[in-house]
């Protein structure tokens, strides 16, 4: 490991110290996620808490293992691994076996971040890499959803939660329920807007309560810790595209409220697509990036084989980010276009 020479440290403007460092930015996002997270715990019980704990543990352990000894305190202290683990946990089904959740955390940091050279060098959002890996690896466990049982059965663990590593989870306990997206895709059933907005529906444990995720987003906006153009572009483009489809065939395609509030739309748009490392740096780029995600989500949801598409939409646009950055680079003042 070569030490950096402090005299040669290059930084981009502005050089004023704003107090906005990696740890504080991470802390803001963590705080913003809390309402939706606790709502998820409330609806899905102890199993959900354990799943999130397992992903965080997996992420932190991997970060610790692959960081040189003298940098460990800094690397773990900045909270980025914690945030990755937490975000990943919030996208998982509440009754996922813990060993799978842990593995997801390991993959998120290992394949999503460390392998690219650590924080700031990764092309893809680590949490989404972890979720994509789990979805490809354990497609059945990852699409087995439970009803949002509420606090009555808070301490009731789902038997699948404690499945032994490498072993199948025991058969379903009759608590399974299709997600609103699944209902829409396979049975053309619309879900009531109230449960979509407040999270009282089945789905991933941290993505069901759209309103609380929005509250967190507003907090980030006030703290100026959010690239607001990206979520706005996603909502506008997805909304317009949905509107277009709905006017063509209202029986087949769901309405705008459904597109915006169902599935991982809110969580993905506000907290994952806006990851500063994997999204474009220019304002124009942010608009392009967001519009791309919005259109892709609606395309995948309505014409693809899967009910949810936000995950792959963000991954695809992550891959396009370097290109967007290159083409939206502002012209250097005083130079002609070349």
């Amino acid at each position: 490991m070569s030490k950096r020479d402090p005299d040669l440290l290059l930084q981009s403007a502005p050089l004023l110290k704003q107090g906005l460092s990696v740890p504080t930015a991470m802390r803001d996002v963590l705080l913003a996620l809390m309402p939706a997270l606790f709502a998820g715990f409330w609806f899905f019980g102890l199993s959900a808490i354990l799943v999130v704990a397992a992903t965080i543990l997996g992420a932190m352990a991997t970060e610790w293992l692959f960081t040189p000894k003298q940098e460990r305190a800094v690397a773990l202290g900045d909270g980025s691994a914690l945030l990755t683990g937490l975000l990943l946990g919030m996208t998982l089904p509440p009754a996922l076996p813990l060993w799978m959740a842990w593995l997801g955390g390991v993959v998120a940091i290992g394949l999503g971040k460390t392998i690219w050279g650590g924080l700031g060098n990764n092309l893809f959002n680590p949490a989404i890499v972890g979720r994509a890996f789990l979805l490809g690896t354990f497609p059945i466990a990852m699409t087995t959803w439970h009803v949002a049982a509420g606090p009555d059965s808070f301490f009731q663990l789902h038997p699948s939660t404690l499945a032994l590593p490498f072993m199948q989870s025991p058969p379903m306990d009759g608590m399974s329920a299709a997600t609103p997206l699944g209902l829409m895709k396979f049975e053309q059933i619309d879900s009531p807007i109230f449960s979509l907005m407040f999270g009282n529906s089945s789905g991933s444990l941290g993505e069901t309560s759209g309103v609380l995720l929005m509250v967190g987003g507003l907090y980030l906006l006030l703290r100026r810790a959010l690239e607001w153009r990206i979520p706005l572009a996603i909502f506008i483009s997805a909304g317009l595209f949905t509107l277009l489809l709905e006017t063509i065939d209202p029986a087949r395609f769901p309405g705008i409220h459904f597109t915006i509030f169902s599935g991982g739309m809110m969580l993905g748009a506000i907290y994952m697509a806006t990851d500063p490392v994997t999204s474009p740096v220019t304002p124009k780029g942010a608009w392009i990036f967001g519009c791309g995600i919005g259109v892709l989500v609606v395309l995948i949801r309505n014409f693809g084989g899967l009910p949810e598409g936000i995950l792959y939409a963000i991954l695809l646009m992550n891959a396009a980010t370097p290109l967007i950055n290159r083409y939206t680079q502002p012209r250097v003042f005083g130079r002609s276009r070349s």
């Binding site: 076996p97 394949l111 490809g136 354990f138 072993m167 199948q168 989870s169």
Partner: peptide, 20 residues
């Protein structure tokens, strides 16, 4: 190797598993 209850890592027998 692990008995009938093994949970297969499906991605491993798909092309991405080869790359990984």
């Amino acid at each position: 190797l692990f008995g009938p209850n093994f949970e297969p890592w499906i991605i491993m027998i798909l092309p991405p598993g080869g790359f990984l």
